[in-house]
Design a protein around this nucleic acid. Sequence first.
DNA 1: GATAATTAATTTGATATCGAAAAATGTAGC
DNA 2: GCTACATTTTTCGATATCAAATTAATTATC
Lengths: 378, 378
Amino acid sequence: MRTKGADQSALQGQALLHLRSRRASSRSSLAQALDVSPSTAGLHVDHLIAAGFLEDSGREQGAMGRPKRTLSLRPDAGWFAGVELTAERVQSIQIDFSGNILAKHLEFLPSHPNAEDTINTIINSIKNLDASQNSPLLGVGLGAPGLVDPQKGLALDHSLIRNWTSVPITQILSHQFHTPVILENNLRAVAIAERWFGAGKHLEDYVIIGARSGFGIAMVQNGRLTRGAHLAAGEIGRWPWPLNGANHKGTLEDHLSAPAAYRRLAGLSNRGRLPVDLHTALARQADTTGRFWNRLVSDYARVVGLIHFMLDADTCYLHGPLTALGPRFCDDVAAAMPNAFPHPKNAPIRFTPSTLGDNAGALGAASLAMEAYIPSTD
Amino acid sequence: MRTKGADQSALQGQALLHLRSRRASSRSSLAQALDVSPSTAGLHVDHLIAAGFLEDSGREQGAMGRPKRTLSLRPDAGWFAGVELTAERVQSIQIDFSGNILAKHLEFLPSHPNAEDTINTIINSIKNLDASQNSPLLGVGLGAPGLVDPQKGLALDHSLIRNWTSVPITQILSHQFHTPVILENNLRAVAIAERWFGAGKHLEDYVIIGARSGFGIAMVQNGRLTRGAHLAAGEIGRWPWPLNGANHKGTLEDHLSAPAAYRRLAGLSNRGRLPVDLHTALARQADTTGRFWNRLVSDYARVVGLIHFMLDADTCYLHGPLTALGPRFCDDVAAAMPNAFPHPKNAPIRFTPSTLGDNAGALGAASLAMEAYIPSTD
DNA sequence: GATAATTAATTTGATATCGAAAAATGTAGC
DNA sequence: GCTACATTTTTCGATATCAAATTAATTATC
């Protein structure tokens, strides 16, 4: 249906993804998953084996009939790099061809970084992952904050990094590493990480609630990331708060971001900066019965509820430092929803903390590189 | 890539859609639009012409080079029926093969309809469209209120029609008319109408604000309808109102639906039923400077703003009786947004009344049947 | 232990699509 | 009027995919 050569390789790329996600494990199940005939699936599998991407790994007997010849990805076929950039630091992660995490790396940016510092740190961070050198780098994924144009490969905007405007970062990195580079907003990268490494493996509609230094959400709908017409979907941190408030009183971000939430739990004022290091300590101390707790829970319940009724996502995953509060927080939020919403019937809200930790952004970026990878079997 | 026969026909179906939407007008532009080689496009066009779906309609000279041989859909190749069902009435519309509206029909349901009444009225309404009988019915689209499962063809729920639960309506209608039947939620059908007949022709991300007897939105994201994990996306009429309110005070629908809005504009209480007939009269009388007007505008601005920051849609289209208020209402709402939102920068909100009238639902249903149609050229 | 049933993988001839070249049909410049 | 150029459409041999039949490898049944 498309250009023939491209179609072939794209099909083989899809095959790799199905095998990685365990949606398929043999030639016949691949044929089903890819919606091609058994002969075609077999053909491509042979090519992929010949090129060193796959290997025949024994048999698997079903209830009856000839047993499947199971296929495995060869971990040594190559690796993918994932990088998450924030205002303060660069986190990178290495996953092998079959999707196992091999290495992590963390590097801090200078206090008032400019674009050049940042780019160098990113490059350095990726180089640091490649300790072994005996396996090729097949792709790089980068999660960057703020507005990001994945198609053009431009990181459009970041207020905290000097002259970081419309940086052609994919071009820079692909020139450096001679591989494809995928760029995505970092919270949206987290959403992809949730698909590959989290609990949302087989979901088509879910939401990441990103309560970090700011507040935003990432949406997967119909199995695809929602970016919006101007790449600004999910920026609900800019909602007014309180929601009825007028005359520029404040934003949702000011009250529900991770620093704000921890300040509120500690009964502190909105003034001053709260060091991130304190988060886990504060999380342990948090009084889960006090009025500060209840107010925060109630506020979150309102926001999650609004999202829920609007998008009808299967699950909302809380991501960020607030996950340190444990499942209790999300459970309380879910339980508080009926108080705020008049007709909670038919509304099985699911709100759970992400099981992915601090690496989710880098992991998602690596996943994006993995998803985009197209093998060549010449 | 898929089953061969199905692929062929599906490709030809896509070709028809591209021609209808004027995204393509010749063999070569079809090849581009469909992402197939010129030879393949030409081949399918020949088949479609031979089967009577298309005709060669002259030449069109570009700046240079051989002129295009323009292709036209043959209007007499068949027609599509679109039906919108609401609690009170059944509206149907007939469009020919090239997408022209041929006929409309309106039928009222009995006062307390049951499922059987409703089904019969729908069937009757479609039969009424087919006055000529000299052109075949190729597909039926149905927009139904409430929860609707397009895949299974089930109209799940409607509180105002007796025993209207999990009605296999597509099965019933396709058995009656011997054509494919497409089912969709009626507001989502309106969104499709906007794509084919409205201003949102080339948009990938837009929102329909449906302020009618209830209040809901329909979303198109990445060019596809958003239905949600439980087919309940867009039901923001169930949001609490005021948005900060607790303890089941009321819903957004209670304050912003069309009847509620007109009551508010007239300074009436929330009690009693407001006849729909009065809407246009009230629209003419509406004082567009008074405090009732300003409050309504401000409330709408808040809701549209929340949607806008969350989804980053290109445009929000107002649909329903409030469009009778004219463009002034939407303009005022758009202008009021900066008052409620702290950081309106980078937020080119577009909020306009739908140019489609009362038939939008039926028109969208017909469009869905049109989109789904797959020709057979044996 | 032979045979039937079941599922997986492969082989094979038919066909849909491709890419590239050729043919067709116009404009632009001289 | 002729040639050069641009663009669309068609032609044609090569190839990717398919559907169906065949082979393969196992369990179930008698």
